[in-house]
């Protein structure tokens, strides 16, 4: 449990703090603007202003429902890997690859030696943080995941590509901390898919976080957690943000056998269904979690980024999460 670290960093959190994984859906006006920008129908300044507007709307919404740790919603990003690949020299944009259903992403290609281009997310974080007193997470994609979700035509193997990326992400973390960011999430959703490479992911995250004065979270989703648990607890972060509801909380059995030794951000709603989970169901899931996890170590959020849902669906899911958490808090305090 890392409440002490958060206190040292000047961050106070309530019991069962609520947060989001990172991305929110773009409002229709921003989706249209991004399309218009590609066709050069609007200027980059026009797009930027609308991205700012959407960011503010999402921050206002999170505050309005009482969430504790906020995110900027990534209104200025498309895909979580492509965003960085478009900025980092050495990448080629690659092309569209299907993820599932009708979802596609640009899978970039490492063509030459990768170089840190200077701050990639810091200005957005700083601007968002000026709009709220609540802490906003710095949001980065992890080196192992960027490597795994890219084609590699340059580095001799996957480890070398991961470590080269880790050096760049470390520089970005330093920039975020320098700007005042205290909570940094390094998303590593790919980390569970090749258990034999957990060591590479761990070494890469070590490069990113070692000696850096921040509270680190990593988000992992849609993989075989059971194959890397409990070994994954050795990843050098303070908090694991996990997708758990999509798989009917089946990881709880594993937590029963091997206690979870770090903080956990517990996913309580499925982000791949239009169905809105009601407050009672979410409350039940939280209560289930608390049977296996110490309440001081548990944060609550959706399973994954909400960008594939509509704005309205996302707001309903988040509102229900907040209401469920408040109900559970009240019961715990009775």
């Amino acid at each position: 449990m890392s409440r002490e670290l958060l206190n040292r960093l000047g961050i106070e959190i309530p019991l069962l703090p609520t947060t989001s994984v990172g991305s929110f859906p773009k409002p229709p006006y921003l989706t249209k603007a991004r399309s218009d920008r590609k066709k050069e129908l609007i200027s980059s300044d026009d797009l930027y202003n609308l991205e700012q507007q959407a960011t503010k709307e999402w921050l206002d919404f999170q505050e309005s429902i009482g969430m504790d740790i906020l995110v900027d919603g990534e209104m200025y990003r498309g895909d979580m890997v492509a965003y960085f690949a478009e900025i980092i020299p050495g990448f080629d944009p690659g092309g569209l690859v299907r993820s599932y259903g009708n979802r596609y992403y640009y899978k970039p290609i490492i063509k030459s030696k990768l170089k840190y281009p200077g701050p990639m997310t810091v200005e957005w974080w700083k601007r968002a943080q000026t709009l709220t007193k609540k802490p906003i997470k710095g949001m980065l994609t992890g080196p192992y995941t960027i490597m795994d979700w890219s084609f590699n035509e340059y580095y001799p193997d996957r480890a070398a590509a991961s470590y080269a990326l880790a050096e760049l992400i470390r520089d970005e973390v330093s920039e975020l901390i320098g700007a005042g960011c205290k909570i940094i999430q390094v998303d590593e959703p790919a980390v569970s898919v090749r258990p034999e490479e957990l060591e590479i992911a761990k070494n890469a995250l070590q490069i990113v976080t070692e000696g850096q004065n921040a509270y680190f979270i990593t988000h992992i989703c849609y993989g075989a957690f059971e194959k890397i648990y409990p070994a994954m607890l050795d990843l050098p972060v303070h908090n694991f943000d996990l997708e758990l509801s999509n798989s009917d909380l089946d990881m709880l059995e594993h937590f029963a056998r091997h206690p979870f030794t770090k903080d956990i951000t517990f996913g309580v709603v499925d982000v791949h269904t239009h169905k809105i989970e009601d407050v009672e169901l979410i409350k039940t899931r939280i209560e289930q979690a608390l049977k296996y996890l110490p309440k001081e170590a548990v944060w609550i959020d959706p399973d994954c980024g909400l960008k594939t849902r509509t704005v309205e669906e996302s707001k309903q899911k988040l509102s229900n999460i907040q209401a469920a958490v408040e109900a559970v808090r009240a019961e715990l305090q009775e």
Binding site: V97, S99, K107, W149, A190, Y222, A224
Partner: peptide
């Protein structure tokens, strides 16, 4: 629900 297809980013 969705599960990852091996070590791909496909589900």
């Amino acid at each position: 629900g969705l599960l990852r297809f091996f070590d791909t980013n496909t589900y």
